[in-house]
Design a protein around this nucleic acid. Sequence first.
DNA 1: ATTATATATATGTATAGACATATAATGTGA
DNA 2: TCACATTATATGTCTATACATATATATAAT
Lengths: 150, 150
Amino acid sequence: MVKIEEAIQQKEFKDPFNKAVVNLLYTHSYLVTSQNALFKPYGISPEQYNVLRILRGQNGVPTTVSSIQDRMLNKMSNASRLVEKLKVKGLVKRSECPNDRRQVDVLITEKGLELLAELQIRVEKGNIDFVHLNLDEVNKLNELLDKLRG
Amino acid sequence: MVKIEEAIQQKEFKDPFNKAVVNLLYTHSYLVTSQNALFKPYGISPEQYNVLRILRGQNGVPTTVSSIQDRMLNKMSNASRLVEKLKVKGLVKRSECPNDRRQVDVLITEKGLELLAELQIRVEKGNIDFVHLNLDEVNKLNELLDKLRG
DNA sequence: ATTATATATATGTATAGACATATAATGTGA
DNA sequence: TCACATTATATGTCTATACATATATATAAT
């Protein structure tokens, strides 16, 4: 186990709260770097994968762009552009919403579902490998992260 | 306290390990968004702030670009370009290393130290506010994050 | 000394995040 | 109806991440 102090060669932190923020940023980078290696061969980014996951969760019910935005892991991201990229790859379909022409209905395609299914196996297996905690510890971590955000 | 399931409207996760990865990505976004509001008025990004912090930690001893890279929170980042941006703002100085002309010595300037000092007060205060945990909990979180990375 | 290899830094390019603004459609109140 | 605010989506721009590659210098091998 490499403590955060060693990992970034910083002797000490102002307090454990500031240390936790740095630790979280650093651990985030560790996870994302690990995940990127998985996504690379599939020509899709983690963020695009996440959008596909959201769409599949709808079970065939079309979703608007703003609804995707609300459910994204990063609220500051840009659902409109991600959907556009997925459309270019043929992984989603976009259609004008009939009752409100401002809205856009988004649906995952068969091709999207197939790619997602294949990717998901690897991502879920990878995530277990990346997290070097036992079951009690990972449950505790989830609890602390939920509480952290207030 | 908002559980991750509510926050991103996902009913359940494959297992607590996959939940933890998603929880970490989401909590990271929460922290970064909170921090950005602090940095905005100073015309500097969190990443540039982090480079300044690394440089100050050297106490006047010049640091090479690759040494900065090693100590960054995100190892995939680009120290060369961040240093260039800080130089344009007059916050760091770059000079060719005499004993190895491939290397570049980087030093924080007076202006950089002043900006860092002013920012640091706000960032450190902010970090305490953002992390809604008590002392025992935050210590436990640090322990779990260190262990998570293996 | 010459060639090959390794290292330090810089640069090119694509995607995403952060944030402001534009555009179009809808809803609301006078 | 008309003016005005609101909402949904798209777009523009800058910074950072991710990763490949270029360039210069240093080191090692022959």
